[in-house]
């Protein structure tokens, strides 16, 4: 019975949440930015008729103009097109990192909260990983696993798992002391059922908020890794790569490094705004911030 009422109420509650989010100013702005960038990334070949790799010696270092919105680089490649394809790479890595670190971080955090015996070991392990500044751990791992997109996602995920695990563990520890969880336990619910039906759903808010911020950090970190030469190797149109390549001509041909940096900032800003909005709506404890 209880479950039926639960499920009947869920859609309406969800609808209310969406309405509150839609009214939240920074969520709205963030959503528009992220949606626009996502669409641009998906439809990149339709938006630009150029090839991001095609070199044309005749049109090197063209400043921004009608034909080449963001100008051309030292190989005559169209910077706007390269930025578009860079969005694909950055958003893929951001999303992949958010999902992977979210799944593992949530599993580790909830397991720590529910099975108290593994808690101390798990938390020392997380402390150990957190002892490396995130970007340095990601650099080490990315160097160890090679510059493929998959290994970058794994490297960045490992760097952000501990923080996510701690946040999920903290909320799960609060939830598991609540009466309805006790009731479920007394009624004979298994640990797995408690985790799946009660702990996980009630940790979703803080988890989701954290993951939007992980998404934002991952975009910044990927750009930094590429810039350092540890990301996808050069011809790849990653935002960090374009900036690194345009750096030597930054004074005379400022547009090569200027626009990809703007793109990184915009994507990160959008995710951060989205995260701020989600936090205000989903995490009432932090409501003080407004």
């Amino acid at each position: 019975m209880a479950e039926e009422t639960d499920d009947a109420l869920a859609p309406r509650r969800r609808f209310q949440l969406i309405r509150r989010l839609a009214r939240h100013r920074s969520f709205r702005i963030g959503f528009i930015i992220v949606a626009a960038l996502t669409l641009a990334a998906i439809f990149a070949p339709l938006i630009s008729k150029f090839d991001p790799f095609e070199m044309r010696a005749r049109i090197r270092f063209r400043p921004p103009q009608a034909a080449y919105w963001f100008g051309t680089d030292n190989f005559g490649r169209d910077v706007f097109t390269r930025c578009l394809y860079g969005a694909r790479l950055s958003l893929t890595i951001g999303l992949g990192t958010a999902l992977l670190s979210g799944a593992i971080g949530a599993a580790a955090g909830i397991a720590s909260a529910q099975f108290r015996r593994i808690d101390a070991v798990m938390m020392r392990l997380m402390d150990g990983l957190m002892a490396f500044p995130a970007i340095i751990l990601a650099i080490g791992l990315a160097a160890a696993m090679g510059p493929q997109i998959g290994s970058l996602i794994i490297a960045l995920s490992v760097a952000y798992i501990p923080r996510t695990a701690r946040i999920v563990r903290a909320s799960a520890l609060v939830v598991r002391e609540l009466e309805f969880v006790d009731a479920a336990r007394v009624a004979g619910a298994s640990s797995l059922r408690i985790i799946w039906r009660h702990l996980l759903p009630n940790c979703m808010g803080p988890l989701l908020v954290q993951l939007t911020f992980v998404f934002a950090y991952a975009i910044l970190a990927e750009a930094a890794l590429s810039f350092l030469g540890i990301g996808p190797p050069p011809p790849a149109p990653s935002w960090g790569n374009i900036i690194a390549e345009g750096r030597d001509q930054a004074v005379d041909s400022w547009w090569i490094m200027f626009f990809p940096g703007l793109a990184i900032s915009l994507a990160t800003l959008g995710m951060n705004l989205l995260g701020d909005g989600l936090r205000d709506v989903l995490d009432p404890r932090l409501k003080v911030e407004t």
Partner: peptide, 9 residues
């Protein structure tokens, strides 16, 4: 903006 802009850029 401070937490969104890449420092190297």
């Amino acid at each position: 903006v401070g937490v969104s802009v890449p420092s190297f850029w």
